[in-house]
């Protein structure tokens, strides 16, 4: 998919080093293959809308940025619930597909499922092309 990943928390780079070496490397062989960035003071988290001033940390937020450097998608969760990585991958694939083809991906689209091509001929005829059950896996 050719995606660059960066992970950011308010921890120091020293904490990142020990976390990678002592814990992450036991979950992922060789450690996670992306940089761990240190957002001391939440300066960056503030402009991304994820800095919790009461707790002094960046909460769980993720952003998909396209090659033109525009934000395509964002998801922000309070910390107790982890992410759905499959959904992240699906969204990246969907955005890559629409940029490449000019087609659009209906609800529940997965790679290989039908896409839609917007235009006058499709107006009012989506019901022929797409059924609600296609919104689910």
């Amino acid at each position: 998919m050719g995606v660059e990943v960066v992970a950011i928390s308010t921890d120091s780079r020293f904490s990142h080093k020990i976390w990678q070496e002592e814990e992450l490397s036991k979950m992922v062989d060789g450690g996670v293959p992306f940089p761990l960035l240190s957002d001391a003071g939440g300066r960056v988290g503030t402009v991304y809308g994820v800095y919790d001033e009461d707790a002094g940390v960046d909460i769980r937020g993720r952003f998909i940025i396209d090659p033109d450097f525009n934000i395509r998608a964002m998801e922000v969760l309070t910390p107790e619930v982890g992410r759905n990585v499959s959904e992240l991958i699906r969204q990246v694939k969907a955005f890559q597909h629409v940029v490449e083809t000019g087609e659009v991906t209906p609800s529940g689209w997965q790679p290989g499922k039908p896409t839609l091509t917007p235009g006058p001929d499709l107006a009012g005829k989506v019901w022929k092309e797409w059924k609600p059950e296609m919104a689910f896996d």
């Binding site: 998919m1 995606v3 950011i8 928390s9 976390w19 991304y48 993720r62 952003f63 910390p79 992410r83």
Partner: peptide
């Protein structure tokens, strides 16, 4: 390139 930026609450947290 396509980029994913992930913020998380802290090293050694649980989720």
């Amino acid at each position: 390139k396509w980029i994913v930026v992930c913020f998380y609450p802290g090293d050694f947290t649980f989720v």
